[in-house]
Amino acid sequence: MQRVNMIMAESPGLITICLLGYLLSAECTVFLDHENANKILNRPKRYNSGKLEEFVQGNLERECMEEKCSFEEAREVFENTERTTEFWKQYVDGDQCESNPCLNGGSCKDDINSYECWCPFGFEGKNCELDVTCNIKNGRCEQFCKNSADNKVVCSCTEGYRLAENQKSCEPAVPFPCGRVSVSQTSKLTRAETVFPDVDYVNSTEAETILDNITQSTQSFNDFTRVVGGEDAKPGQFPWQVVLNGKVDAFCGGSIVNEKWIVTAAHCVETGVKITVVAGEHNIEETEHTEQKRNVIRIIPHHNYNAAINKYNHDIALLELDEPLVLNSYVTPICIADKEYTNIFLKFGSGYVSGWGRVFHKGRSALVLQYLRVPLVDRATCLRSTKFTIYNNMFCAGFHEGGRDSCQGDSGGPHVTEVEGTSFLTGIISWGEECAMKGKYGIYTKVSRYVNWIKEKTKLT
C-alpha cells in the first residue's frame, strides 16, 4: 500500500490518463441519441435557420407576430419608411378606419389613436360632414345658397324668414311668412316636400332668348283662358290664391305678392273693366268669414305684352289694390325667389296649380277651390304637342294621358313649387288646347323671366 501511494504521488498524470480511459469505455446513459432527441424537440425550422439574422431580410411573422416588435424591426421587413409607417399605425392600436367614419364618399386613412378623412370636392370637416359648395344638395341650405369668396357655403332665406341657429334652416321672422300653410287642420295635408338634388348652379339658368321682337298675326285659340281631375282644397291650404270678379264672377285667378299687390295673367284683364279681388276665398257660393274683398285701382301688364300681336306672350300683369290686405292664416303671400332659384325650383319637376275653373272641358265651374299636382314636361315634348308657338318664356306641365289639367277660369292662378315646406311661385296658368285632352298640356308663363320686374313694381313704400 505504501508503494502504491508513492507511485500516485510521483505520477499524477498517469492516474488522470487511467481515469479518462475508464470513462470513455463506459456506456453513456444520461444523453439520448440524435434521433430520439429530435422526437422530443420537434420544432419547425425557421426561415433563416442556421444563418445569422443580421444578414437576412426581415420576416413579418418572425419579427412582429411571434413577439412584439419595434418600429426598427418592422422597418427591416418593409425596407421602406412609408410602408412601415402605414403598417405601424394599425399594428400599434388597430384600424381606426374600420367603422368607416368618413361621410359623403370620403376616404379614410388610419393613424395612431386617430384617423384622417380625405374629402371629395365640396366637403370638409373631420368626417367630411361639412358642405362647402352650393353645387351639392344646395349646400344643405333649406332655401338659398351662395358661395363666399373663400368658396364656403353661405345660406340665406327669402323675405319674412331668418336663418336658424344651425345656419342652414329657415324659420319665420314674421307672423305670416310667405308660402307657408298655417291653418292647423290643413298642415297635415301639406304636399310632399321637395329635397334639393345635386345641381350645376353655374349652368342652372337656361341660355334662352326671349323672342321679344317676333311679330306674329293673332292666333285663334280655343278655350285658351284655361282644375280638371283635381281635388277639393281645404280652407287655408292655398292662402296665396285669390279669385278675380268682373263682368262675371271667378273669371280668373291670381296670387298675393304682398298686402297691396296681386300677380295674374295679362290676358285676364281689360282696361276700363272694374275688377274686384277676393282673398281668403274657399267656396265661392258661401260666406265663410275668411274672405277679404278689395278693388283694383291700377293694372300693370308687362311692358312687352301686346294682345294685338299675341294674347299669351309675356302673359303676366300686376294688380294694385285700393287697401292693403290683412295677412292671416287664410290670406298669405306666395314666396318669389330670384331668377336663378325660381328656375331651379321649376326644374324640380312638379308643381301645384289651383283655381275655381271648370271641372271638365266646357263644363261647370268649381264651387270649392280645386288643386292638382302636375309634372313638368320637357321642352321637346311640349313643342311636338301643339302647332302653336311655345315661346321661351312659357313652359308645359300636365299629363300625356289627359284627364287632369287646369281649365277655363283658372287662368292667372299660381303654379307653385314647394321647397322644404315653403311654396314659391314658378308659373302662372296661361293657356292650353281644350282641357285635359290626351297628348295636350297646360301652358304656363315662366315666372323666372319676370321676377325682377315683379319685385321692382310691387315694392311697398
Rank of each mutant, 00 (worst) to 15 (best):
I390K: 06
I334V: 13
G13W: 06
S204Y: 15
G349Y: 12
G13H: 08
E98P: 04
R43T: 02
N166L: 02
N245G: 06
M8V: 08
D405V: 06
N151E: 09
G421M: 05
G439H: 09
S156L: 09
G412V: 08
S385F: 15
T190G: 13
D249E: 14
Q219T: 13
A207G: 13
V199M: 13
E418S: 10
I309D: 08
L19I: 13
V296K: 01
N222I: 08
N5E: 12
T225I: 13
G254L: 00
T16S: 07
T287G: 11
A173F: 09
E456D: 15
R162I: 11
F71L: 06
I300L: 10
K89P: 05
W240I: 01
E86D: 09
C18W: 11
R140Q: 13
N151T: 10
T271L: 14
F55G: 06
M394N: 14
N304C: 08
G421V: 03
V242N: 00
E231Y: 06
K311C: 04
T209A: 12
S365W: 08
D198T: 14
I443G: 03
F71V: 05
N304E: 13
V183H: 07
S217T: 11
A380R: 07
V227P: 11
P324A: 10
V199F: 13
Q408K: 11
S187E: 09
P414E: 04
R358G: 11
V154N: 09
Q370R: 13
S423M: 15
V368D: 05
L19V: 08
Q185I: 12
Y441S: 03
V331Y: 01
T445M: 11
T287A: 13
Q185R: 10
Q241N: 15
D150I: 10
A9W: 14
V263I: 12
P172T: 06
Y22K: 03
T287K: 07
H314V: 03
T461F: 09
N213G: 10
C108M: 02
N42F: 07
S169M: 09
G229P: 12
I443N: 01
V331A: 07
E116N: 14
G50R: 05
K260W: 07
D249S: 12
F31D: 04
L460Y: 14
N42Y: 11
D212Q: 11
E116A: 13
R294C: 01
D198S: 13
S255K: 00
W356P: 04
A192S: 12
L24R: 04
I344P: 03
E420F: 11
L321H: 00
T190I: 14
A266G: 05
E433G: 11
Y330E: 04
F144H: 03
K168R: 09
I429F: 15
V353C: 03
T426Q: 00
K168W: 10
Y450G: 01
V377P: 02
K274P: 14
V296W: 01
C145D: 01
Y341D: 06
T276L: 05
G427K: 00
S99H: 12
T218D: 07
F176E: 03
K446M: 06
E76P: 02
L376W: 05
S156T: 13
S148Q: 12
P44H: 08
E434W: 09
A436T: 14
L103K: 11
V326D: 13
D33V: 11
S411N: 13
L52N: 11
S350D: 09
R358L: 06
E320A: 03
V181F: 06
T190E: 09
I262F: 02
Y91K: 05
C268Q: 00
R180T: 05
L24G: 05
R373C: 04
R384A: 13
V243M: 06
N80Y: 03
V199Q: 13
I390L: 15
L376F: 08
K459A: 08
V153H: 09
P375T: 14
G409V: 08
N343I: 04
N104F: 04
E73L: 00
F121M: 10
K347N: 12
D405G: 13
A317K: 00
